[in-house]
């Protein structure tokens, strides 16, 4: 219909291109700025330099924060992988009362604003569990991250299970495999792509999270986003912040494109 109207078609194309330029210019600017020779990062850049990248590679604060982020991300992803896959199997392979409620509960932690989740977890950890010896730290960060990462794994695995149907598993059972053999030799290999994609995306989400982290980390634990935010308004740290921001931007592309290639539900995971 619209294809028959060249004027509208061109206008929509121009709008879409403008929208995409708008999406990518700020990201490109961050990467460009990390090579800006000027210390105040005026525009246009006064020259090209690798000085800040070398400075960032030697920044112990940033490197330590990177290690914390990776550790928190790996632990949260591992928990989310197990719990998200179990929930996806339950919802996709069984019919039971409250199935929709289960899906809703899984999605809720990324639908509500991070600050509500963050304050709620903070209240629980400090007011309720504080008296029994719980203190804010890496462990509480991992609990918080795992809670909102479950949905990412769940969405990826559930979508794959829905597409696969049950015919392969039935064929396996008809050929005499017991349920465990079917699971190990048929279901898991068919799901591998969705599991890896879900894990990658869950890790990416955890790696980037700042709001829930702020309220669950306490004063001693610094993830990379917390480190950046803490140094954002310090002019003498600006060059290193710029490099770390550029690294985060470039690193974000890798898990997403990998997950895409593995047939993961990149678009649907977070919406």
């Amino acid at each position: 219909m619209i294809r028959r109207s060249p004027g509208l078609r061109r206008a929509l194309l121009a709008w879409t291109v403008a929208g995409l330029v708008l999406l990518y210019v700020p990201l490109a600017l961050v990467v460009l700025n990390s090579f800006n020779a000027s210390r105040t990062f005026g525009f246009p850049p006064s020259g090209f330099t690798l000085r800040w990248w070398i400075a960032a590679a030697g920044s112990s604060g940033a490197l330590q924060a990177l290690g914390t982020s990776v550790l928190a991300g790996l632990c949260a992803t591992a928990i989310a992988l197990v719990l998200g896959t179990m929930a996806a199997f339950a919802v996709q392979r069984f019919r039971f009362f409250g199935r929709r409620a289960v899906s809703f509960l899984v999605v809720l932690p990324i639908t509500l604003p991070g600050i509500v989740t963050g304050i709620a977890l903070n209240a629980t950890f400090t007011s309720l569990l504080g008296p029994v010896g719980v203190t804010l730290g890496l462990g509480t960060v991992i609990v918080g991250h795992a809670t909102f990462c479950i949905v990412i794994v769940f969405n990826n695995v559930a979508a794959r299970l829905r597409r696969l149907g049950t015919s392969f598993e039935e064929a396996s059972a008809d050929l005499g495999a017991n349920p465990w053999q079917t699971f190990r030799l048929v279901t898991v290999p068919l799901l591998r792509g969705a599991l890896v994609a879900g894990a990658l995306l869950a890790f990416a989400l955890s790696f980037d999270e700042i709001v829930v982290t702020t309220f669950t980390a306490g004063p001693t634990v610094q993830t990379l986003p917390i480190w950046i935010f803490g140094n954002l308004f310090r002019p003498n740290q600006a060059p290193v912040v710029n490099v770390v921001a550029a690294v985060l931007t470039l690193v974000a592309i890798v898990p997403v494109s990998l997950a895409q290639r593995l047939g993961g539900d990149v678009a649907g995971s977070r919406t």
Partner: peptide, 28 residues
């Protein structure tokens, strides 16, 4: 779809920071 989705996964903090750079008095 890929082009629209990818920025979603770029760091939220970095994207907000990018606008701080864009809008700064000496910015683009």
């Amino acid at each position: 779809v890929v082009a629209v989705t990818t920025p979603l996964w770029a760091s939220y903090l970095v994207k907000a920071y990018a606008w701080r750079v864009l809008l700064s008095p000496t910015g683009p």
